[in-house]
């Protein structure tokens, strides 16, 4: 094989982004984290392991550029660099779709391992967008990962599913597993209408990698196919994603306090009253 001549990188981080429950923001996090890491000059590959319902290409605005998938690479119908789709603006970021939505059960854990081994030679970061659920799709995606980020929302069903997934990650010796709490609404948290950060971290008992605030801009950017972090508009969610990317590299950035973010003078005044400063 031609690969044998190249030196194999050992410092590549292969990170699985998973949640158990669907719709909590795995794909959005993968896309934004990919862009953020790439903007910091790190060569990053995002692997869409959710190929039955693949969306990552849509979020990155790369749908029309996909010609080959990892499936063709493994069957040696094309080279890896033909299947990798480079992002239009962020040349450090490449997308690799794992398969064709029509070929549902071709992927096996061994195939996944081979794909990831190939990507490891070229990239600093490999982010794997995991499908929802805990069945074969998840097990395949997990088989080639070293560490994981579990995404969850502050609601009971998402936390329950995340807990199940963390159990599976632990029995498969994936370390470290970190937590991202997505779609946080500071106002609802302040009024105790939503699970608090402590409620979630109490049950899941994982280090919190970051919070992402609920932001309407996420929907707009998804529909446009331009991840929020790409244009660094003054969006609260984009800031959160950037912070997560920095923390992932070991930078010490304090977590935002949702209470500080809950807008409106009324709320701030009420808080001051509660803290009995007056």
């Amino acid at each position: 094989m031609t690969n044998s001549r190249r030196s194999v990188r050992t410092d590549t981080r292969v990170i699985l982004i998973c949640s158990g429950k669907g719709g909590v923001g795995k794909t959005t996090l993968t896309a934004n984290l990919g862009i953020s890491l790439a903007r910091q000059g790190l060569s990053t590959a995002v692997l869409d392991a959710d190929f039955g319902l693949r969306n990552l290409d849509l979020l990155l605005g790369l749908e029309n550029r996909i010609v080959y998938t990892a499936q063709e690479v493994l069957e040696e119908e094309c080279r890896l660099d033909q299947a990798l789709v480079k992002h239009k603006q962020e040349s450090n970021l490449s997308l690799l779709p794992a398969g064709n939505p029509r070929m549902l059960d071709w992927l096996k854990p061994d195939d996944m391992q081979r794909i990831v081994d190939m990507l490891k030679e070229q990239f600093n970061y490999v982010l794997i967008d995991c499908p929802a659920g805990v069945e074969d799709g998840f097990k395949n995606a997990m088989s080639a990962s070293q560490e994981a980020i579990v995404v969850t929302n502050p609601e009971v069903s998402a936390v329950r599913d995340a807990d199940r997934v963390i159990g599976l990650l632990n029995t498969n010796a994936i370390k470290p597993v970190q937590l991202v709490l997505n779609r946080v609404r500071p106002k609802m948290m302040a009024n105790q209408e939503m699970l608090s950060i402590d409620d979630v971290t109490d049950i899941l008992a994982l280090p919190l990698l970051g919070l992402v605030l609920e932001d309407e801009q996420v929907i707009v950017s998804t529909n446009r196919g331009e991840p929020l972090t790409l244009n660094s508009v003054n969006s609260p969610a984009a800031k959160c994603y950037l912070n997560i990317a920095k923390r992932l590299q070991g930078e010490d950035i304090p977590l935002i306090d949702p209470a500080e973010e809950s807008s409106g003078i009324g709320a701030k005044f009420r808080r001051l009253m509660q803290t009995k400063i007056f």
Binding site: R160, D161, D163, R164, I166, G167, N170, A205
Partner: peptide, 10 residues
């Protein structure tokens, strides 16, 4: 004796 969290589904 078991040490560690028993998580959902276990």
């Amino acid at each position: 004796f078991h040490q560690g969290t028993i998580r959902s589904g276990e």
